[in-house]
Every structure is written in structure tokens, then in C-alpha cells.
């Protein structure tokens, strides 16, 4: 393995004069989990949106496996091997759990423009295998629109894995879940990442989850990166402590 999977160099983005992301650089390696934390409004989601092309950066660049992907549309970024889950779950509510995964598989295999075959019968085994991995096989036939929140997050993970990604971007993957579900999901993510050598970048407000699963942590405050290192190093960092104390919240943001 040569070099990091993802490298951000000096990313910057401002909204109407407010610098949401300001000169952020970091790397993520294959098979590793990097946590991005920070208080509310620190710019985490903006940062994610810059990485997968949802937003165009004002400055800086993004490299995926050494290739500059700055400014590419989300669908291009996906095609290059980046899976993403969203802070507010985004699944296709008019489809079953399996169909959600099938949709991603169809797209991955370039079958989207087929007007005549039956989508339901495509990639059933592969979809089931992915669902099996995230523990959703039993609910494959259920409508996504009626799933519990925690289950939706797992479906999102299965969808994000459908294109055999090199990199997973997970925006608060465990938000809205019970503590035990959180641990289970992140253990699952960590296991899959290590088995397949996927680099994972995630944001999270539950510090127990962060400290238990992240290989490395970076801390964002008002758009700037203020710490980068192991759990211990970050925990001991006085800047980080100040940010979280100053925000009035405990060690956790939004």
C-alpha cells in the first residue's frame, strides 16, 4: 500500500464571509478509521461536503489515492470509490431495503440506463450479502420508509459499501441510535474497514464511540484544524479542552 487513500490539502470554504472551513489538511490511510470531531458549527458537515463534491472548495484540493478529485461532482467521486452516509439518513423510501442496495449495485455496474429488464431481479445475491454483513438481511423486504432509525443507518452503510469503496465518508453514522446500537455499528464498521482495507472518515458526537473505535482523531473548531493525533493526545490537548469547555457543552458537539 503506498500513500494515504484520502488527502485533503488546505481546504477552505466560506459562506457569505463566514469561513466554515479554513485551511484544513489531513490524510486517511487504508483500513484506518479517522474521526473528525468538533463543537456545533465547527464545519464538519461542510468539510464532508467538500470531500465528496457536494460543495466546491474556495481553495485547497482533495486527492483520492493520489488523484486530484477537487471539484468533481458527487457521482464522479462515488464512481472513483467513495461511499458516503449522511447525517440525516437519506434512503429511497419508496423502495425496500434490498432494492436500496440493488439500486447502488445497478449504478456501480453501469446498468442504470436499462429500460427493459427487471431491477428487482438484478444483483439479488450481492445485495443480500451486503445486507447480511450489516445485519439487515432479515428485513430485506421491508420498505425503507418505515424502518427504525438505527436500521436505516445500517442500510446506508450497506449502500455505501455497494461500490466496493476505497474510502467511506460517514457523517454522524450513529446519531439517533441507542448506546448499544452505536457500539455495535461502529464495531461492524471497524471490522469491515480492516477486512477490506477501506479508509474511513467519520464524524461523531459520542466521545465514547470516538475513543473506542478511531485510530486517529482530528478536531475542527470554527473551520480550523486544532488537533490531529491519537485519542490520548487529543484528549490531553489544551486547545481541544478549551474549545469544548468554552462551548459550554461536554465533550461533544451537535
Amino acid at each position: 500500500m503506498s500513500g494515504p487513500v484520502l488527502e485533503a490539502r488546505g481546504l477552505a470554504k466560506a459562506f457569505g464571509g463566514v469561513k466554515a472551513v479554513d485551511g484544513v489538511s489531513f490524510t486517511v490511510e487504508a483500513g484506518r478509521l479517522l474521526a473528525l470531531i468538533g463543537p456545533n458549527g465547527a464545519g464538519k458537515t461542510t468539510c464532508f461536503n467538500l470531500l465528496n463534491g457536494q460543495l466546491q472548495p474556495d481553495a485547497g484540493s482533495v486527492f483520492l489515492g493520489g488523484r486530484n478529485i477537487t471539484g468533481l461532482a458527487p457521482r464522479m467521486v462515488w464512481a472513483l470509490g467513495v461511499g458516503r452516509t449522511f447525517q440525516i439518513t437519506a434512503t429511497f423510501s419508496s423502495m425496500t431495503v434490498r432494492e436500496n442496495v440493488q439500486m447502488a449495485l445497478l449504478s456501480h455496474h453501469g446498468k442504470v440506463w436499462n429500460l427493459f429488464s427487471r431491477a428487482r431481479e438484478a444483483f439479488v445475491a450481492k445485495a443480500d450479502a451486503l445486507l447480511e454483513q450489516v445485519g439487515m438481511a432479515a428485513q430485506a423486504e421491508r420498505a425503507c420508509g418505515i424502518l427504525a432509525y438505527g436500521d436505516l443507518k445500517r442500510v446506508e452503510l450497506a449502500v455505501a459499501l455497494a461500490n466496493a469503496p476505497k474510502l467511506l465518508l460517514m457523517d454522524e453514522p450513529t446519531a439517533g441510535m441507542s448506546p448499544s446500537e452505536r457500539i455495535a455499528l461502529m464495531e461492524l464498521t471497524a471490522r469491515i474497514a480492516r477486512e477490506r482495507g477501506i479508509a474511513v472518515l467519520f464524524t461523531e458526537h459520542d466521545m465514547d464511540v470516538v475513543f473506542a473505535h478511531a485510530d486517529r482523531i482530528i478536531v475542527l473548531d470554527r473551520g480550523r484544524l486544532i488537533a490531529d493525533g491519537s485519542a490520548e493526545a487529543v484528549r490531553a490537548n489544551p486547545d481541544v479542552q478549551a474549545v469544548y469547555l468554552g462551548s459550554g457543552s461536554t465533550f461533544g458537539g451537535r
Binding site: A73, F86, A90, T91, S94, M95, A104, S107, N114, N163
Partner: peptide, 27 residues
Amino acid sequence: VAIFSPFGYALRAGRDSPVRAEAIGLN
């Protein structure tokens, strides 16, 4: 038939969640 074809699914995907659809490579 087209509604239940991969294209029809992609169409519905774009309706249900445009953000997600783009994030799995759908134009």
C-alpha cells in the same frame, strides 16, 4: 415495465432522495 426497470428505479431514487442518488453515482 420501464417504471420497474433499473432506469425507473434510478428515476425514483432521484425523486426520493436526490442527495443520496447523486452520492451513489446517479446523474
